[in-house]
Each structure stands twice: as structure tokens, then as C-alpha cells.
């Protein structure tokens, strides 16, 4: 199962990088979303993909009666999803605000913080 899933991670990252190469900020953000999902999937695979019971111990027992799946990667992914959700949502709001104020989503024309210096006359 790891092989096909790893392939999916690769495809997600390739698509994400392609989108991030665009000048348009929104494409860049969508690229980030894809790569963020790829990262989560990668953690999931790194925690070994197995067919097992959910990691719950029935009442009255101290240890699970049968092999359970590893809960830690799932906890990590959950945390990463929440954090990623927050960051990407913030980025989206920021881009919306920037579009309203700066009037463009083309990164090449965003030069307010780093203005192109005026050309100096060449002296001999």
C-alpha cells in the first residue's frame, strides 16, 4: 500500500510546485495547500500503513486485546492539519486584503516594500 500512496505524495508535490511557480499569488497558495496535504500523507505513510483495529482499549482492560494501528502519526497529522488550516486560512485572508489594497495578485508588480531603485546616469 505504501508504493501507490508514495506515488500520490509525489504527484501532489509536483502539482503543488507547478502551481507555486505561477506569478499569481492565489495559484501559489493553492500549490501550498496541495503540498501541505502531501506532507500530511507522507507522515501517514511514514507511520506504516497497516490493517488493524482503531487504537481504543475496551472498558475494563489495561492493554488492547488485538493489534491496533499506531495512533501517533494520526495525532501528528491531526495537529498538522489544524495548524495548516489556521496558517492557510490566514494566508487566504491576507491575500484577499492585499488584493483589495494593492489591487493586484501579480507578485512581480508588488514592489512597494522593495522599490526598484531609479536608474542612475552612467558617469564616464
Amino acid at each position: 500500500m505504501e508504493g501507490p500512496l508514495a506515488l500520490v505524495v509525489g504527484i501532489l508535490i509536483a502539482t503543488g510546485v507547478y502551481l507555486m511557480l505561477a506569478r499569481n499569488l492565489l495559484h501559489y497558495l493553492f500549490g501550498l495547500v496541495l503540498i501541505s496535504n502531501a506532507a500530511n500523507l507522507a507522515i501517514f505513510i511514514a507511520g506504516r500503513v497497516t490493517r488493524a483495529a482503531p487504537p481504543l482499549i475496551p472498558e475494563g482492560l489495561q492493554v488492547p486485546p488485538e493489534p491496533i494501528s499506531n495512533p501517533l502519526p494520526q495525532a501528528l497529522i491531526l495537529t498538522a492539519i489544524v495548524i495548516g488550516f489556521g496558517l492557510l486560512a490566514f494566508a487566504l485572508a491576507l491575500i484577499a486584503q492585499a488584493y483589495k489594497v494593492l489591487g493586484t495578485l501579480d507578485v512581480d508588480s508588488m514592489r512597494i516594500a522593495e522599490p526598484i531603485p531609479p536608474k542612475r546616469e552612467k558617469s564616464l
Binding site: A38, A39, A42, A91, Q97, V107
Partner: peptide, 21 residues
């Protein structure tokens, strides 16, 4: 601030994803 902020956010998010991976 918005102009500088976008560049900061965009590049730091990449670092976040690299770190997570």
C-alpha cells in the same frame, strides 16, 4: 506592510511544510 507581509508569509509557509515533512 501587506506587500512585505505576503513575501514573509509565502516563504515561511514553505519552510513550515519542509519542517513538517
Amino acid at each position: 506592510q501587506l506587500d512585505g507581509g505576503i513575501k514573509y508569509v509565502a516563504l515561511n509557509l514553505v519552510s513550515t511544510l519542509l519542517m513538517l515533512t
